[in-house]
Design a protein around this nucleic acid. Sequence first.
RNA 1: GGAGGAAUACCCAAGUCCGGCUGAAGGGAUCAGUCUUGAAAACUGACAGGGCGUUUAUAGCGCCGCGGGGGUUCGAAUCCCUCUUCCUCCGCCA
Length: 424
Amino acid sequence: MLDIKMIRENPQMFVELLSRRGGDFSYIYDMVDKDKRRREIISQVEKIKALRNETSKQIGLLKREKKDASEVMKKVENIGVEIKAFEVELKEIEEYIHYNLLMTPNIPGKETPIGDTEDDNIEIKQEGTIPTYDFEPIPHWDLGTNLDILDFERASKISGSRFTVYKGLGARLERALINFMSDLHAIEHKYTEILPPYIINKDSMIATGQFPKFEDDAFKVLDERDLYLNPTAEVPVINLHRNEIIPVEQLPIRYTAFTTAFRQEAGSAGRDTRGIIRQHQFNKVELIKFTKPENSYKELDLMLKDSEKVLQLLKLPYRVVILCTGDLGFSMRKTYDIEVWLPSFRTYREIGSISNAEDYQARRANIKFKRTKDAKPEFVHTLNGSGLAVGRTVVAIMENYQQKDGTIVIPEVLIPYMKTDIIK
RNA sequence: GGAGGAAUACCCAAGUCCGGCUGAAGGGAUCAGUCUUGAAAACUGACAGGGCGUUUAUAGCGCCGCGGGGGUUCGAAUCCCUCUUCCUCCGCCA
């Protein structure tokens, strides 16, 4: 979340920056007014409390000396009532401010281009050559059904729409990619591997920014506890350090985590209904970093390179874009999307997203570090990126490596994991 | 699922029955110093942090803080309610 202290210094600047995302943020001014009232009340209440503490101490002294304290006690009797009245108002104001801060997205960074839709994203690089075919490339859902490695019909029997059964070498391809990506990041790129819980509490969802605004996107566990299915490894892994002061020598912390992610896709009805591009359940290998503020953009670019490496090794053509303000995620200051070429779509599709939240999530999650033993704690910067979405990588391999006879050649780096060089 | 027990500062731990000189004893670890060529030992000293408010201020002062939240009271680590986590035993289970 944003810092109310900084907002009150310059509210119009925050309103202007937030408006770049689209929407009305004029309520910020009201928050600043409420914050002023909040501080007034605190000053008053604390004066009264100081008096009460002092007087109570006197009562204690008198009683210990077996003296009569009833007169002094009468004097303070009503102090509690007075405090309570102030605290009712204070609580109301604080809840208002806190809720609005939770509902307010991050301000876009300087390098985030202003725009409304993904059409305003800026392409910064293309890599790999788009393959040409002497036949009409077919979409992955047909390839998968023909090869009997993806089973959509039976998946809907078991679970419903937007679920898929992987079968035979299809299942092995998914598993091979999970291992290939995890090995690359954990062993080659030196990220510490994490295997987190997939069921997550509400505090964690609030800390990374999913809640309260996007509660509809999560699968809720039917249980008296407030528990939800993991929507992305970003949530459990950032929350590893919630309410912690990280020893400065540990920074930067780099984690990689394979998780299965679950999403309602509530706002995507009718989009990508065929195939496995958009599923309620999908696998992802994620990269997460905690850094000092001054290093976060350097680490962001390194993270982008680590993600790109997956596609380079798989020899898949892709491009990188910078998301514009209208496409930027709620908690993020700056985001790169990696988009892979899909022949049957004749376009690039998102396969990974690499973002810097700066201190936005750290402030929500209360994650700090101290430069020295006596220094004041500062918020870390949090970064997260895909490394990559596994299901979409399966799609990219199937489509880009398809042959005229309907078979799929396995990329060389995956052969040790697949124990075969072709799916037929 | 059943029956008990516990949560105090970096760690261990006293205090909780019987509320007030406990804003938290004591020990360990750590840091600094004395001694030493250096180190160890011994001795001396420091050692609650974090948030909030006020403020030019990482100075002062104040408020909060003994697992979290709430309550009783002039006053709560101590009493009451509630939640969470951990431990022991029984049952069940991959």
